[in-house]
Design a protein around this nucleic acid. Structure first.
Lengths: 356, 356
DNA sequence: CGGCTCAGTCGAAGCGTTTCGACTAACCGC
DNA sequence: GCGGTTAGTCGAAACGCTTCGACTGAGCCG
């Protein structure tokens, strides 16, 4: 493995000149630079990351603090990660994967104190997330994907839940729905202070009230069974419901299954709109889900770019960014059934069946 | 940030003594060790990872080479990653996430040449995976999750597709099915040399032939639409099919949807068994999928442990390990419909409906 | 033309560890 | 009581880079 010494020797210049040619920290003449680059190419030189990190006190490593439970990553979160990975790689940085949740603060403290991280990207952020305090205390620049309750002096990229819920409710109201139930994440998740669950809850209340409608929210466990249970609860508490808005990607499948089992057709009897869902997942359901489509890898990319600005500029300015979700109408939403006359969607499906 | 110097000064010993007390590379008396540890605690000392890496020529970082496409990570792959992350962390190692596929060999070469990786874990391995050659050439220890065609001198952990397919086919044959169709990954994926697709194809042929049955495989795009299309093809080529074995997690949902659309009930008209599927995903479907359940995080853990053995022992012995998938019978499989008399599953479901 | 600035280069001092050789004392067997 | 281990400690030399201060000419201004 060639070192900078070797390159310097071969190019007949000093080590520092090689370094400057490589980093551009000081001006180097064209001729010298060419000699150096030629030597590097000949020796297949690659700078040693550890030595560089030690001398420059910059590791060029960013931490990706991603708590991973057994549920796996949804397409939405995976898109965040790929976006982040691509952006980091493009900037010459590396991503260190640390499945550190709010539980292992000691682990986080250790990692950050080892000066291995130039900055950190926090995922699965909770409203009161102690990881933020730890990193701030240790002087590690950070950016959130999601956001805490108090975002003072913090950069973040998050989904605009307010806009998303408003658009989804608006879509259903436009179709003529009045009795809309919101299926959220579980009660535990809410109690824990999981931001998206709380923010969508409030946004739903606001949106429904704004339309002069009564908001009804049902928490559901993150599983098919949770969705089934939620549907049962929903039908008990609002037997006349005609539409369901679902935040919970796992539950929505159980919910659809239970609707089918009970002989309620989608969208004729009940419309279903899924929140923050990737197209791929929306298409899995039958009928394909009308959904608010998550902004995808852009979130991760912007978060990394913001983080790098903090890292380089010694805490540049704060960037707080909310990304909208776009309404994508598919087969799971339609006008509510009107007494006597079949809906447009029903006619369409009948036609399809005849063709088949 | 305290350095080893500070600790040494406070404990009134030399720097090297502190180092030995920390790493245990040489014997240190109880008394001295205690003094050193006390000083460390008082100063909140954490060794600098870069300095340590430079001096020891070991970064304590393992690369996780995980190509990530837009599809997202399934629960199965996520489990591999969490298992790997946990095992690495337990051993005091860090995991560097590099979304490097067979495409970016230069990127990989650069990463590995920077001496930033003590070893690498390759995921999404293809039968002829050039990443293996690059890493071997650069002397980076590696372990595969999955395996190449030629596994000579390579350690890997993979799913035992042979056993898995045999068990799944066996389950269906035991139920009385004779006409079983296998829905695999896409033709492109097969052509690309994706191991699981090829291995299950061959295993399916062998298993069916072993039972004296005719094997029929249908490739399907990794999407709901792909599953729907595959079902259409399957019904055209084998109108009398009574069971489907599916490798393709995305396609299986489209397949179920299309079966429902066509009025074929599962499992009475058609049994469906999903391969290498996590319980969470299997439960999402209605009815819940009978599946070969993936071994989960154990795969990642074993892979990391093997990798660390190679890293420490300077290429210890090769470890090639196949992990079985367990059959988990749920609602999507049952005996084929027999002329005239309703199946057991049909009776059960009728009873359920009455109760509801 | 004397004094400036500035591009271009060099040497050397770190950065914070690990690790090697050397040294001392204590301990062993005989 | 003598060579030979061995436990325990120290000092110093790496490890491979960045970065600072200093030096040299060349170009420029008045």
């Amino acid at each position: 493995m060639a070192t900078m010494q070797d390159v310097a020797r071969l190019a007949r210049v000093s080590v520092s000149t090689v370094s400057y040619a490589l980093t551009g920290a000081r001006p180097i003449s064209q001729a010298t630079r060419a000699k150096v680059l030629a030597a590097m190419a000949e020796l297949d030189y690659q700078p040693n990351a550890m030595a560089r990190g030690l001398a420059s006190r910059r590791s060029r490593i960013l931490g990706l603090l991603l708590p991973m439970d057994e549920r796996g990553l949804g397409a939405t979160e995976t898109a965040f990660v790929t976006g982040a990975a691509a952006a980091a790689s493009a900037a010459g940085y590396h991503l260190m994967l640390s499945p550190i949740g709010v539980g292992d603060l000691d682990e986080l403290r250790r990692l950050a104190s080892q000066r291995m991280l130039d900055g950190a990207l926090l995922m699965e952020v909770q409203l009161h997330d102690p990881r933020v305090d730890v990193l701030r205390e240790l002087g590690v620049p950070l950016v959130l994907i999601g956001r805490t309750a108090d975002t003072d002096g913090l950069s973040y990229v998050d989904i605009d839940f307010d806009q998303t819920v408003r658009a989804a409710v608006g879509h259903l109201v436009d179709l003529g729905h009045r009795r809309i139930v919101y299926v959220n994440h579980s009660a535990d998740t809410l109690a824990e202070g999981y931001g998206p669950a709380l923010r969508t809850r409030d946004a739903f209340t606001a949106a429904m009230t704004g339309h002069g409608l009564e908001p009804l929210m049902i928490p559901a466990e993150d599983s098919a069974a949770g969705g089934r249970a939620a549907l049962a609860t929903a039908l008990r508490r609002a037997p006349d419901l005609t539409a369901i808005l679902a935040m919970n990607e796992s539950a929505v499948f159980g919910l659809l299954g239970e609707l089918a089992t009970r002989g309620r057709s989608v969208p004729d009897d009940v419309s279903v709109v899924s929140m923050v869902t990737s197209p791929q997942v929306a298409e899995l359901a039958t009928p394909a889900l009308t959904a608010m489509s998550s902004p995808g890898s852009a979130v991760g990319r912007i978060a990394i770019e913001t983080l790098l600005r903090h890292v380089d500029a010694g805490d540049g300015q704060i960037n707080q960014q909310l990304m909208p979700c776009a309404l994508e109408v598919r087969g799971s939403s339609g006008p509510p059934r009107t007494e006597g006359k079949p809906t447009e969607a029903a006619r369409r499906r009948a036609a399809t069946r005849r063709r088949a």
